[in-house]
């Protein structure tokens, strides 16, 4: 039987514009590409990583710390891919 795996990671928003529309779209697209449910939280606010509107409602600014939590068969891959987007500053700046 395939075991449900889970992964979590803290990421920092480093691009100047923060998690604006395009960055949220990139994040949602990436999150939707894995067999995993991914949640993003900023403080007490937790949202679905595949939902652009929810991501934008976080108002994640440069310097903010976000928590990624994934569960499902590809949880680790999903968290790796999302972290990479933050590290690459969503290819901005």
């Amino acid at each position: 039987m395939m075991s449900e795996s889970a992964a979590s990671r803290t990421v920092i928003v480093t691009n100047r514009a923060g998690l604006h529309a395009r960055a949220a779209v990139l994040l949602a697209k990436a999150a939707g590409g894995f067999d995993a449910r991914v949640l993003v939280s900023k403080g007490p606010q937790q949202v679905d990583a595949t939902d652009v509107l929810q991501l934008m409602s976080l108002v994640a600014e440069q310097g903010d710390s976000l928590q990624l939590e994934a569960s499902g068969p590809e949880a680790r891959q999903a968290v790796d891919a999302l972290e990479d987007l933050f590290l690459r500053k969503f290819d901005e700046d």
Partner: peptide, 14 residues
Amino acid sequence: RPGDHLRALENISR
């Protein structure tokens, strides 16, 4: 003013 832009997006998305 990237913060204002994010707050406008927050309002729109909410």
